[in-house]
């Protein structure tokens, strides 16, 4: 297996957008000439009104859509030039918390959290303790055997986060992770991301919750009409 390996410290950016544009079909561009870069271990928010293109920007990073212009570099690789053989390996280095969770309803919370490890072909014995530990860490220790449809919103959210981080990705992308949660739960979720960030993971969170962004004091990428209008530096580097 050809591991797409990079030395994070040698690479100056985990992620780099150069004049990236995206248009769906013949519609007006959703993203116009967006440029920015993320340093390893950084923590950023993407803000913007609904429809501003936050989700689209994340989709470009996790390679669910292809840019119509510009260049995206991930872990030092131009994603347009990654071979289809290496693509899955690249995806395993990214953890995604989808806006709609995308949990598999016929499998237990434990099964859902284990997906990223399981698809690598590892034996269950080698990772099931890690999964259990992680689920406890996100406060799902008592809910491992439950099917997603019976989970509360906050529980689904935490399960989705557990699945996103279980394989220790180098970058975490979260799309409105506090969308339908009360302030208390939002705080807990945000704390989770901070903890992961402190462990060295690069974090990028799309949100329209301006209050949460301000409280966190983290840097912001603000989208307006598909343009990146400011790269607001945070109070913390």
């Amino acid at each position: 297996m050809a591991r797409v390996s990079d030395n994070l410290f040698a690479a100056e950016a985990v992620l780099r957008f150069d004049d990236v544009s995206l248009a769906y079909g013949r519609n007006d561009p959703t993203l116009r000439r967006v440029s920015f870069s993320l340093k390893p271990g950084s923590f950023h928010f993407i803000t913007g009104a609904s429809g501003a293109g936050k989700s689209s920007l994340l989709k470009l990073i996790y390679m669910a859509v292809r840019p119509t212009g510009g260049r995206i570099e991930l872990f030092g690789h131009d994603i347009a030039r990654i071979s289809s053989r290496d693509l899955p390996l690249m995806r395993r280095r990214i953890g995604v918390v989808f806006q709609d969770f995308r949990l598999l309803d016929h499998m237990t919370a434990f099964d859902n959290a284990a997906v990223p490890l399981r698809i690598t072909g590892l034996r269950p014995e080698s990772y099931r303790n890690d999964v259990a530990e992680l689920l406890s860490w996100v406060g799902m220790g008592e809910r491992m055997h439950v099917l997603p449809p019976t989970l509360a919103g906050g529980e689904k959210q935490r399960l989705a986060i557990a699945r996103a981080v279980v394989a220790r990705p180098e970058i975490i992308l979260a799309d409105e992770p506090t969308g339908n949660l009360d302030a208390d739960m939002s705080q807990r979720i945000l704390k989770l991301f901070s903890q992961l960030n402190r462990l060295g993971t690069t974090v990028l969170i799309a949100t329209h919750d301006q209050g949460m962004v301000e409280r966190s004091g983290m840097p912001v990428l603000h989208l307006e009409n598909g343009r990146l209008v400011s790269q607001v530096p945070g109070t913390r580097p």
């Binding site: 395993r92 995308r102 598999l104 997906v115 990223p116 698809i119």
Partner: peptide, 8 residues
């Protein structure tokens, strides 16, 4: 889900 999590 499998595809986006990096399954071949």
């Amino acid at each position: 889900v499998l595809h986006l999590t990096g399954a071949e």
